[in-house]
């Protein structure tokens, strides 16, 4: 019973992180058809900015929005000065289907090496605003801390804000329209280019929040968020890459599978589980759970 509760709680906390990272990737993919591998690097740079703020002000609650702002700005810059011109230049030939993936790998490399030059590869300690120790109930200590609760509640708040934004605001509506039918939206007066940049900025902010949530209790280094990119991407692909609900579900599925296998089977399986889960789901649904066909109206 204890095992079951522990596994579920860890799965929930991990799943929330994966879900938010997946959402960041989905936001970009939906609006510009780019699988943004630089997301890990963008989140990492934003987290370093959050770390700078936290070491100066000693206030986590200033660092979190500061990092989110930095993440949004960085993403907007990448979209405006690299991805948009690239889409026009590399629109034909053998490179066309993969050009943006390749460019984002290049950006990831630049961010990695740039961050290592500025902040060195030495691990930085990022203090958590709340306790990272397991919660004690009765005589048993569960591997679930206040920090995990902070993660889950923040992710839920961010997700609900996004859902409200997409469903209930006119900017959210034009974002969905531009993602679904760019040409028609343009005719309907949506400034598609600007809306796309906003989509990127939102994604950058979400990625930054992931970094600032997950780093306390761990260490920060230029490569510390890379593995989250893999998990987030797997979660996004499980969900179908285009649907925010899919991202949330994919994150949860992945988080639960990881925590249950590591508690019930072996922690050595951490890197193999995502591949197996992904393959199983893609064999049944090659475009993910919510992907393909009619669900593009999400």
């Amino acid at each position: 019973m204890e095992k079951l509760i522990s596994a579920s709680l860890i799965g929930l906390s991990q799943g929330a992180i994966f879900a938010l990272m997946a959402l960041a990737l989905v936001l970009v993919f939906r609006s510009t058809r780019v699988v943004n591998f630089a997301q890990a690097g963008q989140a990492m740079v934003s987290t370093y900015i959050g770390w700078e703020v936290v070491t100066r002000t000693e206030n986590y609650w200033i660092a979190l929005p500061a990092a989110a702002l930095a993440g949004a700005l960085l993403a907007a810059i990448i979209e405006t000065f690299l991805m948009r011109p690239l889409a026009k230049r590399a629109s034909h030939g053998a490179i066309a289907p993969v050009a943006s993936i390749i460019a984002s790998l290049g950006v990831l490399g630049v961010l990695h090496s740039g961050a290592a030059m500025i902040w060195t590869t030495e691990q930085k300690l990022f203090e958590s605003p709340v306790s990272v120790n397991g919660i004690e109930i009765g005589s048993t200590v569960y591997p679930f801390s206040q920090a995990d609760m902070l993660i889950i509640s923040t992710v839920v708040i961010v997700m609900l804000t996004f859902a409200f934004f997409f469903q209930r605001t006119s900017l959210g509506l034009s974002l969905r329209a531009a993602a679904f039918q760019p040409e028609i939206s343009r005719l309907a007066g949506v400034r598609v280019d600007r809306v796309r940049t906003i989509g990127w900025a939102l994604s950058g902010a979400a990625g930054a929040v992931v970094g600032v949530l997950v780093t306390p209790g761990n260490y920060l280094s230029p490569f510390s968020l890379d593995i989250l990119l893999v998990y987030g991407f797997v979660a996004a692909v499980i969900g179908g890459l285009e649907s925010p609900q899919g991202a949330a579900l994919g994150g949860l599925i992945l988080g639960m599978s990881l925590s249950f296998t590591s508690i019930y089977v072996s922690s050595g399986l951490t890197f193999i589980v995502p591949f197996i889960v992904l393959l199983l789901i893609l064999l049944v649904k090659p475009k993910g759970i919510f992907g393909g066909g009619s669900s593009r109206n999400a």
Binding site: I101, F233, V234, V237, F275, L279, L282, G288
Partner: peptide, 9 residues
């Protein structure tokens, strides 16, 4: 992107 995801994993 789905293939990229599978091969990355």
């Amino acid at each position: 992107p789905y293939l990229a995801g599978a091969t990355l994993a």
